[in-house]
């Protein structure tokens, strides 16, 4: 695989996780438990959507270096099938109840921030500048989702039970965040990407300390579900994409 193809695939991973989670958060519009939360989730989704666009735009430029033409942001978002999506399995999991949504967000936000801090030093200046911009937003997301983990965990018996169940259920999707493959490793060695394994201790430390304060238990399971980065997804992604993509696929060239 050439360098440009690797970078393209890597950018899709970053963009797709942002896009898929943004779409999931968008599903809460009009369904949030209170108006403030409805607005907050949508705003987090909006940040992620903005970040996805920056990654997609760059991915399209990189694609043009080895393909006949680079695809547009819209083509990459709306005209690929689930097997071509490179997002983490974690972010495509359904919203469930509010604890499920916040547990998913918390696991992702802490990882996302650690990753972006590293990518801010990427040798690829475009990746570095997008990472710096995105990290400023994500640090706020992480603080907000940590607040919720503590509030729910150290709340009522009911909220405690639900957030612990969510933390446990989603645990098996956290492994692939730290699992480098034949794309991550060379890019990390070249200083373009980062060493995913090195993120894990800091992530466990941060997640563990928040769960501690929330009177929750860090799951101990070691079996992890993998595949998102290779396009092998859970059944949920296809259903989500059907909703997200039907309009531009049905009405080709439709514009806002």
């Amino acid at each position: 695989m050439t360098e440009d193809r690797r970078v393209f695939d890597y950018l899709l991973r970053l963009a797709d996780s942002d896009l898929v989670l943004a779409q999931r958060l968008g599903e809460w519009v009009g369904h949030g438990p209170v108006l403030e939360e409805d607005i907050a989730l949508t705003n987090v989704g909006l940040d992620l959507l903005g970040q996805a666009r920056l990654w997609f735009a760059y991915a399209g430029e990189v694609e043009a270096r080895f393909a006949e033409a680079g695809r547009s942001e819209d083509a990459l978002a709306f005209l690929r099938d689930s097997g071509e999506f490179r997002n983490l399995l974690l972010v495509e999991q359904p919203n469930g109840n509010y604890a499920d949504t916040m547990a998913r967000q918390f696991y992702f936000d802490v990882w996302h921030q650690l990753l972006l801090v590293k990518l801010a030093h990427s040798r690829d200046p475009r990746i570095a500048e997008i990472a710096v911009k995105a990290e400023k937003e994500v640090v706020y997301h992480a603080e907000r989702s940590a607040d919720w983990i503590i509030r729910l965990g150290d709340g009522t018996d009911e909220s405690h039970a639900r957030i612990q169940a969510a933390i446990d259920d989603l645990w098996m999707y956290t492994g692939e965040m730290f699992d480098p493959d034949e794309i991550d490793t060379p890019l990390a060695e070249e200083g373009i990407g980062c060493d995913l394994r090195a993120l894990e201790p800091a992530w466990r430390e941060a997640v563990g300390s928040v769960l501690d304060e929330a009177t929750l238990t860090l799951p101990g399971g070691t079996w992890m579900q993998r595949g998102g980065k290779k396009g092998v997804h859970t059944e949920h992604l296809g259903h989500m994409l059907a909703t997200m993509q039907w309009l531009p696929r049905t009405y080709r060239g439709a514009e806002w």
Partner: peptide
């Protein structure tokens, strides 16, 4: 220059 400061995650 931001460094990871996980203390901000706590209330």
């Amino acid at each position: 220059a931001r460094v990871i400061d996980t203390s901000a995650l706590h209330r």
